[in-house]
Design a binder for these strands. Sequence first.
RNA 1: GGCCCGUUCGUCUAUCGGUUAGGACACCAGGUUUUCAACCUGGGAAGAGGGGUUCGACUCCCCUACGGGCUGCCA
Length: 470
Amino acid sequence: MPAADSTPVVTRFAPSPTGYLHIGGARTALFNWLYARGRNGTFLLRIEDTDRERSTPEATAAIVKGLTWLGLDWDGEVVSQFDRRHRHAEVAREMLARGHAYKCFATQEEIEAFREAARAEGRSTLFLSPWRDADPATHPDAPYAIRLRAPREGATVIEDAVQGTVTFRNEQLDDMVCLRSDGTPTYMLAVVVDDHDMGVTHVIRGDDHLNNAARQTQVYRAMGWAEPVWAHIPLIHGPDGKKLSKRHGAVGLEEYQAMGYPAAGMRNYLARLGWAHGDAEFFSDADAKAWFDLDGIGRAPARLDFKKLENLCGQHIAATPDAALLPEIEAFLEAAGRPPLSQAQKDGLARALYCLKDRAKTFPELLEKSHFVLGKRPFLPDEAAARALDPVSRGILKELTPQLQNASWDRDTLEGVATRVAADHGMGLGKLAGPLRAAIAGRTISPSVFDMMLVIGREETLARLQDATA
RNA sequence: GGCCCGUUCGUCUAUCGGUUAGGACACCAGGUUUUCAACCUGGGAAGAGGGGUUCGACUCCCCUACGGGCUGCCA
C-alpha cells in the first residue's frame, strides 16, 4: 500500500558510482529533491556500490560534487549500499526461514547453457529453478544462491504515479536472486531493504526500472513491508531522439558546469524537461518546490535542447544578484580549468556586472564581454576592432579625448559630448560608437561604451583613448 | 523473440469529451538600436495511421506502425 498522504515524505537519489553523474541522473535527483523539499520532506543520497568491480571512489566523488554544484542538498550522511551488505543478507535469510525464498544450487554455467538453448529454439529464456520445490534432503553440499519464491499465478500490479497502473503477469517474472552464491546481496534485494530501512516513501527513478519494480514489489510483500509510491520517469534522449549517450556530446553534469551554464538555469531547464506547470517556463527554486508534483510528469522521453537551456540560463544570469554571481563565475573558471581572477579583476568585474549580466547566456560569454575590465593596457585591438580604428576615426577620437577631460563623469554628459563630437563630423552617435568601443575594449563586442567608461573611470578611459590614437 | 512503456508544432509542453488546439525555445520577415544581448510587431509550424465508443474525440477503447526500456548470481 502506498504511504498515506499524511506521512512525511522521504525521497532518495540512488546512483551507482560507475562514472560521471549523468545528466539524466541529475534530473532524477532534482525531481526527488523538489518533491521532498516542496513538502517539508527528507531527501537522501545513497550510493549503490554493491558491484565492486565497477564502483569507484572517484565516481562517488563526482556524484557528490555534481549534486553540490547543482545545489541539491541531501539530508544526513551519504549511505553506502555496500556497507549495508550484512543487513541485506540478514533479510535474505529471513525470507528463507519464512519460506519466501529458497536455496538454488543451479550453477551459472547451467543457467547460461539453458538460456542459450532456449534462445536457439526461440523459447522463453526465463529460468525456472528446479530447486524451488526440492526436498531439502536432496540439497547438495555446494554453494547456493537464495532466490525469491515469487508467485507463479496471477499478476503483480504496480500503481505508478507517472505510468499509471502497470500489470505484470507473474508467469513472466522469474525468481530473482537475492543473495549470490558468494553471499553478497544483489541490487534487487539491496534497494528494497535500503529503501525500507531508510523509510523511503516515494521512489522516483528512471523508467528503466519499471520492470524491476514488479519484482521488488514481491520482496516488499514477502517481508510484509509497506510499499513506497512508485514514480518511474522517462529517460532523457539526445536531440536525435535516441537514448542519450556520449556520442551526443555532453552527458556528464560536470561538463555542463565547465561549459558555463549557471546551476540555477540548469535546475530550471531540467525541471522543465518532462514536467510542466501550466505555461510556466522561467521560474525560481521556490516556485519549483511549490509547484512540483508527480502528476505533472510526462510519460514520453524528452530530448535535450541546448538552445532552450541557453535561453533559460541567460534569464537566470540576468536575475542573479551580483554578489551571488561572482562566486559562481569563479567556480566556473576553476571547473573549466581556466586561470583564477586576481583581486583587481574581481573588483572590476563586480563593478561591471550590472551591464554584463543581462547580455550573456553563459559564463564564457559574460567573460568575453568583460574583456574591457579584465584586461590591462595597452588594449591591443583584435582584427575587427583594428578595422574600426581607421585613420579618420582615430582623428575624431583624438578630438573627443580633451573634451572628456573636463566632462563630468556621468552617463548623460558623456553621451552628450560624444553625440556632439559626432555631429561636428556630420555623423550620428552610432558611427562614433564603433571606434570608441574598439579603443576602450579592443573588441567590437562589449557592453555600451558609456557603461564601460563609467566602470573604468576617467583616467583609464583617457589613457586607452591615447593608446589608440597615438 | 517475450514482457512493459510511450507517440500534440523542429524541440519542451498546455489541454484532463465540446478551444479558431494555447505558451515557450528555435526559425522566418519587419521594427528599434551604439556592437553583442535584449526588446517590439507579424508569420509559418502539431494531435503517427486505421478502426470503434459517443450527439461530439487530441482527450476513452482496440489494432497497426514507429520509438524506448527490460529480459544477468549488473545496477
